Amino acid sequence: MEPVVRWTGHEAGLLRQALRKNVKDFAAEVGVSPRQLTTWEKRGSSIRLQPDNQTSLDTVLARADMPVQQRFAKSLTERAAAGPDERAEQLLRTGAPAIRHEADGKLMVQVDEGIYLAGPDGTPDWLDTYLIDQFPTTNADYARFVAATGHRPPQHWPGGTCLASLRDHPVVWVTWHDATAYATWSGKALPSARQWEKAARGPKGRIYPWGNEPTAAKCNVAEAGIGMTTPVDRYQSGVSPYGVVDLCGNAWEWCSTESEPGRFELKGSAFTSPFERVTPSLHNAANATMRDNDTGFRCVTAVPNSDDRPG
């Protein structure tokens, strides 16, 4: 696991809990007094530890076994995901209402027509209005598709049945053909790479869905140390300007754009990827038959007429 960038009393307390040690034993391992450790934990994020103490905590974390490191990483990311984020809360509270699609029941949000700044150079581009799934296709969504069509279930479902613990995680182990079959069944389509990028970056070409600051805590990437997918609604602080969630990290998403014969673009990166790969303008592609534990999808559709919108 990567060292913590900045240790405060909060991170020290989480590491102690991950190690399942009492204050006295953990203080002895770090090389401070129990009283000092208690003060750290009481003051939480308001106290920044001295360099020698930070180094000591780095060493304790590096020596910890994998279950401890995973518990510590999960605690860190859960706090980051659940923490207050004024921009996200305002956007999700006052943004355009989501539309529930009549076929698969997923919430979709509207991306208005107009120019947006595309690619790493911010080149002006135009797209018509469309709707995009607010969240990636989950295992629960895909299970309804499998039940209705008899389509092959993903290989990580024991006996072909989705585990209850994964129902709200993005479906993975799906090929481009699998994703396209779901989209066809639901009366939708896979987004083009341009549609996906605009939904993620907004019209002004921000670097990430949440802005221009490289904040790894807003998505499930390799640095988090979780090592698997997470629920699609966990990282709402990473919401895009249009109210689209979980676009970066967690699972790569198939697009309809063919980069060369038989290969299609992937967007968003995954829990297996370093944070540097989450940039929505990044180009990535894979063979249409590829399936992996970090690759899923979401869908788009045209905006219905006002008199026949799904309720």
Rank of each mutant, 00 (worst) to 15 (best):
A217I: 03
T279D: 09
G268W: 00
W196C: 12
F275K: 04
R298L: 15
Y208W: 12
E260M: 12
W196M: 12
G262I: 03
V232K: 01
G227H: 06
P274M: 12
S186W: 02
C255M: 07
H169Y: 13
A285T: 10
D246H: 02
A216V: 15
Q236I: 13
G225S: 06
D294Y: 07
W210V: 12
K188W: 01
E213T: 14
R234E: 11
W176Q: 08
C248N: 11
F297C: 15
T175H: 00
S186L: 07
G225W: 11
P209S: 10
T279A: 14
V244M: 06
C248T: 15
A181Q: 01
W210S: 14
S259K: 09
E253V: 00
E265M: 15
K198W: 01
P214M: 08
G243P: 04
L190W: 02
I207N: 11
V239M: 03
E213S: 14
W176H: 15
P241A: 07
D294P: 01
Q195Y: 06
A216P: 00
F264P: 02
P209Q: 07
N293T: 05
P191A: 09
A216E: 13
M290H: 02
N293G: 12
Y182C: 07
R194K: 14
S237I: 11
P209I: 13
A222S: 14
T230A: 13
N287K: 03
D233R: 13
C299I: 06
V239E: 03
C299D: 09
S281C: 13
H169W: 11
N212Q: 02
E258H: 04
L190E: 10
S192K: 04
S259F: 02
V171T: 05
G211P: 05
S186N: 02
A181R: 03
L282S: 13
A189T: 11
C255D: 10
E253G: 04
V174K: 11
V245N: 02
A288P: 00
T295K: 03
V174G: 05
V221E: 04
K204Y: 10
G238A: 05
R206S: 13
A217M: 06
R263L: 05
R194Y: 11
W173C: 13
F271A: 08
